[in-house]
């Protein structure tokens, strides 16, 4: 078996166990630490699948979130009262296990015959090849100097044009393809994303603000 695939499966098992413990444990601090472990596992999975940008972002965000969560949990002295919840119906659990088994079976099966089998785990569409002329945008010819077969993926057209003189990597001048797309081709999306972060920060300030809130303000505003 492919060692990377094996490592990914081990990581998936680790993350699964971490998630289950995070949900089921009674100690809040243990739960937070398990969530952090799952986050770091996610980061490693990104790294193994060849997405270093995402892996870096995931690991630094995870560190910051973990610091904040641990701090909040430690300074909060009150014990969370474990509420007794009704156990899930057996049928629902069996259904979930069945779906999970189907997914695992599907991902482990190699899709040689293009039937109902899923694509092997960790084998993205990027590895598939197609004629370069097919991938060019409508009404345009394939760029000169491009190889006859190009990666067939969501970014295939970009990658194909990246080999021509005035577009792609040479067009943006960014050696990092991801940034070339994020801040040049799709900069508008990045503006929206920045706006989302801005609004989220504003929301935190509004909820946690001190100005204009007295001790009994909550009672008065309820009326």
């Amino acid at each position: 078996m492919d060692p990377v695939l094996l490592l990914l499966l081990v990581l998936l098992g680790f993350m699964l166990a971490g998630s289950l413990i995070a949900v089921e444990t009674r100690d809040l601090l243990s739960s937070v630490i398990c969530v952090g472990a799952v986050g770091f596992g996610t980061s490693l999975v990104f790294l193994l699948l060849g997405a270093p940008d995402l892996a870096l972002t995931q690991v630094v965000v995870e560190i910051l979130v973990l610091v904040v969560l641990v701090r909040v949990v430690i300074t909060r002295r009150d014990e969370t009262h474990a509420t007794s919840r009704a156990t899930l119906p057996v049928g629902l659990v069996l259904l979930a296990l069945g779906v999970m088994a189907a997914i695992v079976f599907g991902t482990l099966a190699t899709g040689e015959d293009e039937g109902l089998t899923m694509r092997p785990f960790g084998d993205p569409l990027l590895n598939e090849q197609a004629e370069a002329s097919v991938m060019a945008p409508a009404g345009e010819k394939a760029p000169e100097g491009a190889p006859a077969r190009m990666p067939k993926s969501a970014g295939g057209a970009f990658l194909a044009h990246g080999l021509s003189e005035s577009q792609g990597s040479r067009g943006t001048g960014a050696a990092n393809y991801v940034m070339g797309i994020l801040l040049d081709y799709r900069a508008y999306d990045t503006l929206g994303e920045a706006t989302v972060v801005f609004v989220a920060v504003l929301g935190v300030y509004a909820v946690l603000r001190k100005v204009g809130r007295s001790r009994h303000a909550g009672n008065e505003s309820d009326r």
């Binding site: 940008d53 870096l56 972002t57 960014a174 990092n176 940034m179 801040l183």
Partner: peptide, 9 residues
Amino acid sequence: HMTPGGGFA
């Protein structure tokens, strides 16, 4: 614009 990372990370 050259190495992984960028403004957000």
